[in-house]
Write a protein that binds this DNA or RNA. Structure first.
Length: 287
DNA sequence: AGCACA
C-alpha cells in the first residue's frame, strides 16, 4: 500500500488494491474499436430505426441489424469513423429508454471487433442480417439508403405478431424528432431520454476543474453561428452550454470539438452532446 | 446475455 504521497490520483482510487495493469490479451485491446454493439432492442425493431438513432451522431458511418436466431432477440452494430466518436455515441445513448411504450433500455458496448463492411458510395447506409431459424433462408441481407429507404421488412416472415409499437420513435418522415407522444414521455421522465433529437444548444462536459469561460469561448468563437456560452459548476466539475444560431452549426462544432483536449483539461477530451433544451434568451441578471 | 460482415 505504499503510494507516493504526491500522487494526485491517490484520492480517487485509494482502495485496498491497485488496479491490475492492463493485460495484453485481446480482451483489453479496445482502443481501436469504432463499432458499437447494441442490445436491449425491442424485437420489432427496424433497421431504419437503428439508422435513425445513430445517423445524427458525429462520426457515424453505417449500421447493421442482426436477428440472432435466439428467440426474437435482435442486436445491432453501429460503425463510426473513429474510436472517439463511437465512444461518444456509446456514452450518450447507453441506458437511454428507447421505447417508452415497452420500456426498452438500450444497452451499448464496444463491439468485439470492427465492422469489415465499408459503406460504399451509393450502397445502403444500413444492412439487415437475418439468422432466424428458417431453412433455406439462413442469411438474408437487405440494404437501404438515406434518400431511398423504401424497404419494408414486414413481409418476409410469419413470426411477427406485433408491429405496432414502434411509432413513438420515428415519424413518417423518418426523423428522430420528438413527436407529441415522445415529448410527453420526455417531460415526464426525469431519466435520460432519447437524445438523438438535435438541439442548437450543446452540452459540454468532461472539462477540467480549471476550465474558464474565456478559454472555452475562444475556441467556440472560431465557428460561425456561435451565440453564447454558459459555464456552470456541478459538484466541482464545470459543464458548459454553448448556444448556436442553427442546428447545422451546432453539428459542425460537435463534429470538430468532440474529444478536443483543452489546455486546462486534466481528464481528456471534451464530451459534447445536444443539450436537452435550447438555451433561453440572455437575461440581464445571472444567478 | 446476446457480437456479423469479410
Amino acid at each position: 500500500m505504499a503510494h507516493p504521497p504526491y500522487d494526485p490520483y491517490y484520492h480517487h482510487h485509494h482502495h485496498q488494491h491497485q488496479l491490475p495493469p492492463p493485460q495484453l490479451n485481446d480482451k483489453s485491446d479496445r482502443n481501436g474499436i469504432n463499432t458499437l454493439f447494441v442490445s436491449g432492442l425491442p424485437d420489432d425493431i427496424k433497421a431504419r430505426e437503428i439508422h435513425n438513432l445513430f445517423r445524427r451522431r458525429p462520426g457515424f458511418d453505417s449500421c447493421q441489424l442482426k436477428y440472432t436466431g435466439r428467440g426474437n432477440q435482435v442486436v445491432a452494430f453501429a460503425t463510426f469513423f473513429n474510436h472517439q466518436s463511437a465512444l461518444a455515441a456509446l456514452h450518450s445513448l447507453n441506458g437511454v429508454k428507447f421505447d417508452p411504450q415497452t420500456g426498452s433500455i438500450l444497452h451499448i458496448e464496444l463491439a468485439r471487433s470492427n465492422s469489415r463492411r465499408k459503406r460504399k458510395p451509393g450502397s445502403g447506409a444500413y444492412v439487415v442480417i437475418d439468422n432466424r431459424t428458417r431453412e433455406g433462408n439462413s442469411t438474408q441481407e437487405t440494404s437501404s439508403n438515406d434518400a431511398d429507404s423504401k424497404s419494408d421488412e414486414s413481409s418476409d416472415t410469419e413470426n411477427q405478431d406485433s408491429v405496432n409499437k414502434v411509432d413513438s420513435v420515428t415519424t413518417k418522415s423518418g426523423e428522430i424528432v420528438a413527436d407529441s407522444d415522445n415529448a410527453v414521455a420526455a417531460a415526464n421522465q426525469p431519466e435520460k431520454n432519447i437524445d438523438g433529437s438535435p438541439c442548437s444548444t450543446l452540452f459540454i462536459a468532461n472539462l477540467g476543474p480549471n476550465c474558464t469561460e474565456d478559454e472555452l469561448k475562444q475556441v467556440l468563437s472560431h465557428y460561425s453561428g456561435f451565440n453564447m456560452l454558459k459555464l456552470r459548476a456541478r459538484g466541482g466539475m464545470p459543464v458548459a452550454f454553448a448556444d448556436f444560431e442553427d442546428i447545422k452549426q451546432a453539428n459542425k462544432v460537435m463534429d470538430e470539438l468532440r474529444g478536443r483536449v483543452l489546455p486546462s483539461s486534466d481528464r481528456g477530451g471534451m464530451h459534447i452532446e445536444y443539450a436537452r433544451s435550447k438555451m433561453r434568451k440572455t437575461e440581464k441578471k445571472t444567478e
